[in-house]
Amino acid sequence: MSKEQELHDTLEQAQSTQEARMGSGTDDRFNSKLREAFGASPFILTKFDQFMNWVRGNSMFMLLFGIACCSIEMMHTYATKHDLDRFGAGVPRASPRQADVIIVPGTIVSKFGPRLKRVYDQMPEPKFVVSMGSCTVSGGPFQEGYNVIKGAEEIIPVDIHVPGCPPRPEALVYGVLKLQEQIREGESAPVTVKPYELEEFGDLERDELVQQLANEIDEDDLVMRYNWVDSP
């Protein structure tokens, strides 16, 4: 088998995984109810959607959210010298109910995974995720740790990855601008089912581990199950 064929196969496989995870009814974060009702795309609705994308692309409230090292550079990005607010994206809100964008600035570990998912779920649609730093791309320098989740995308959908350890504020500004550009074009990352989801404990398959923990966790507690072997 030639190298190219191999590459091709890998890509194919990757796509099918994505499809498998996506399920139906994906990516309707931008489409208005009106468009669904009319079916086609009349001129006014198209213009309206364009206007809405312009609106969403130019104004966003960020979630005041710090995890690790990158949050220091994130603060610098909000602050005087880099001033993310120039692009209408510099108002941090403490409550997830009022935020549009969550910047995930740091390593996600097993204990925090369920909480991250919860915070993400609390945000109202349409919502966007900027993952900041190598840890949120792949686990970064801590990838081999027993406790580290190999990237934010294991838990929540990510629109923009900003690599770096940590990324400079300029890089984060660039990432946010790219996100705004993407939104203005009406594109967004598909909301896919992630490998690590919050599930009710009672719904888990009854394997050895579940049996062991049965006394400690209630049936209807939400849990996140980490299968480290399957992690990339």
Binding site: S110, K111, P114, F201, L209, V210, I217, L222, Y226, V229
Partner: peptide, 9 residues
């Protein structure tokens, strides 16, 4: 290190 873990919320 490869054994699965369950973390409750």
């Amino acid at each position: 290190q490869d054994q699965p873990q369950i973390v409750p919320l």
